[in-house]
Design a protein around this nucleic acid. Structure first.
Lengths: 216, 216
DNA sequence: TGTACATCAGTGAACGCGCGTTCACTGATGTAC
DNA sequence: TGTACATCAGTGAACGCGCGTTCACTGATGTAC
């Protein structure tokens, strides 16, 4: 890690926002936190003081807009989930002329693409159990998952129907596989991974092999 | 988090090991670190001082056996990878009478079983890029992956042959899917997951759907 | 058998660090009269 | 138009914490002679 400035106060040149524009700092803090999460290696590398330094502001100023560090993380979390959903919607919408499998494939590639383009943010969204704002029975990523589920059904890959929250088990399998691809590729960069298209096709085209369907 | 004892020295009752048995402490430290990793929420929750506390020893005593915290983590890492490999070998060996698909299924379930039984250790093995001892071009988990690859081939699911390090892309897909299942279930405990058998079967039996094989 | 010495296993005390958080304060800008 | 006041946006200084690491030390046990 590079040595960091230890200055405890904000940038000397910074001027306070004008009256009524104090909320601007809130956005700057979210942006600073996002940048740090994207550069660092996890939520634990994000400290309130680091965010304040990045935003050129004294540590205490963070409390003007957030109750604590956790609340700041929640704000980042919400912004990034919106981003992912928009990415997936774009990929799905752009494939209106595609058949079911091609649309599913496009969605899968878009999902992996987001994960590869924003590894740090992906970690925030789907990372350790400590993700901020994660309530046991509330699923912030559900809209994205529903989008995927729709594509899986449209491709004729969910013969058994929906599961507990309206999501087919096959969709959960696809989601898990994509999640595994993104995280393994991110965390094991030294491994000679094939291109992501090859892996996604291997997943979608898995041959039945010599086995029969499990009875159980 | 519960409040922890802040005592800086070791347990008052602890007696030094006898001459020649100083190496015993090494094992105790690895065990203490393993326990903390299993209880905590990631490597960042492991501190040298916490390990020493757990082992009932002064913080400096850790340096008698490890150059630094990192070296201690490497020792845990090696021990746990051996454990996972043994688990998979058992599952594969016990299924000698099984056909290819059933053996692959048994391996997949054993993999997920290890991940669910030891979520903290699984995190150490396949967690963030900071995993200790992880050199870019060395893959400590390769033996386990080779075992899985063998089963995928035996099940007739790798028509294209081997990839870069002798592992078929289909095997990487299965690995990624299992990894995703384990980590998502661990990190999203509030989600109404189906039983792991259902998910593994959904992965292994994915219907071809209405699409054709991708040309590219 | 006695004794000086070496070695082993581990501790006491301290260092400087970055952290989250609190409290009282400042200086500019708007508003009431 | 002037002036007293309220409010807003932010800072200065400090707190106690656990952390990794270093240095000098202790006390028991074995070994050489």
């Amino acid at each position: 890690m590079a040595t960091m400035t230890t200055r405890t106060t904000g940038a000397p040149g910074r001027r306070p926002n004008r009256r009524g524009e104090g909320a601007l700092l809130r956005g700057e803090l979210v942006a600073a936190a996002s940048a740090l999460l994207e550069e660092g290696e996890g939520e634990q590398s994000l400290s309130l003081r680091a965010v304040a330094r990045r935003a050129g502001v004294a540590p205490q100023s963070v409390y003007l807009h957030f109750a604590d560090v956790r609340a700041l993380l929640v704000a980042v979390y919400e912004a990034r989930f919106g981003e992912l959903l928009a990415t997936l919607e774009n990929a799905g919408g752009g494939g209106d002329g595609l058949d079911g499998r091609a649309r599913l494939r496009a969605l899968c590639l878009a999902y992996c693409g987001y994960g590869q383009a924003h590894p740090g943010h992906y970690r925030v969204l789907f990372g350790t159990a400590g993700s901020p704002g994660w309530e046991p029975d509330q699923m912030a990523g559900l809209p994205a998952l529903a989008l995927l589920d729709e594509a899986v059904r449209a491709a004729g890959r969910a013969p058994g129907g929906a599961g507990a929250v309206g999501i087919a088990p096959e969709t959960l399998g696809v989601w898990a596989a994509l999640h595994g691809l993104v995280t393994l590729r991110r965390d094991r960069p030294g491994f000679p991974w094939p291109p992501v298209e090859v892996l996604v096709d291997a997943l979608l085209d898995a041959p039945a092999g010599d086995g029969v369907r499990a009875a159980s």
